[in-house]
């Protein structure tokens, strides 16, 4: 464990909690893409299947349970509890155009052709594109609530910190996982234009709005 990976995990945890609180407090999931949240729940489910069979550390197990619980709670709130506020008309990204190619790629490019490893690879590839419906929705609505931009910033920052963690681990431990690194690069690159808008607008007290 190194400081980049720890701050990455905490940034990820902050993002997940921020979103949960935003929906719970405002009792509304306006501006939130349900499709992205369903894909994140799928990412955690397919990645943490070894939760009970492969104990790494108390920290690892606790975080996995929190991620799983929060992601399912978020999906529940979007599609059940606060369904009336779900903005389905703007959440129109075709998720199947992501899930099917990612599923195929996981079969072709993986470390080991076993069910657990293919599902883990699927979760890594899916996570790298899971935010696309959310970013697409923001371009459709032309704006995002400030709390939602903080959520997205923390979420994007987590994988950027993981990239530094992988440089650290390669240098000090000789460890590297090319599948996770390539997917992590793609994932972080997808946030770049959001990062630019966030830093130039939101951090200057402006609302995030896109030229319609």
């Amino acid at each position: 464990m190194n400081v980049f990976r720890l701050t990455g995990d905490l940034s990820h945890l902050v993002a997940i909690i921020l979103l949960l609180l935003k929906i719970w407090k405002t009792r509304s999931c306006a501006g939130i893409s349900g499709k992205s949240q369903v894909m994140f729940a799928l990412v955690f489910t397919t990645r943490y299947l070894d939760l009970f069979t492969n104990f790494i550390s108390p920290y690892n197990s606790v975080m996995k349970v929190i991620y799983l619980g929060c992601s399912y709670a978020t999906v529940y709130m979007i599609y059940m509890k606060f369904k009336a506020s779900y903005d389905g008309n703007h959440d129109t990204f075709r998720a199947e155009f992501l899930i099917i190619p990612v599923g195929g790629l996981a079969f072709l490019v993986n470390h080991e052709f076993t069910p657990l490893e293919i599902l883990w690879t699927f979760s890594i590839y899916l996570e790298s594109v899971a935010i696309l419906p959310q970013l697409f929705m923001i371009t459709k609505t032309g704006e995002a609530e400030t709390i939602t931009t903080h959520y997205l910033f923390a979420l994007g920052l987590y994988r950027a910190l993981y990239l530094i963690n992988w440089i650290w681990r390669y240098y000090f431990e000789g460890f590297f996982d090319l599948i996770a690194i390539v997917a992590g690069c793609v994932q972080t690159i997808l946030y770049c234009d959001f990062f630019y808008l966030y830093i130039t607008k939101v951090l200057h007290g402006k609302k995030l709005s896109l030229p319609a």
């Binding site: 990976r5 492969n54 975080m63 991620y67 883990w120 000789g174 996982d177 996770a180």
Partner: peptide, 10 residues
Amino acid sequence: AGRIQSHDEL
């Protein structure tokens, strides 16, 4: 690194 023994990252 060879086959990843077990994925120790979240």
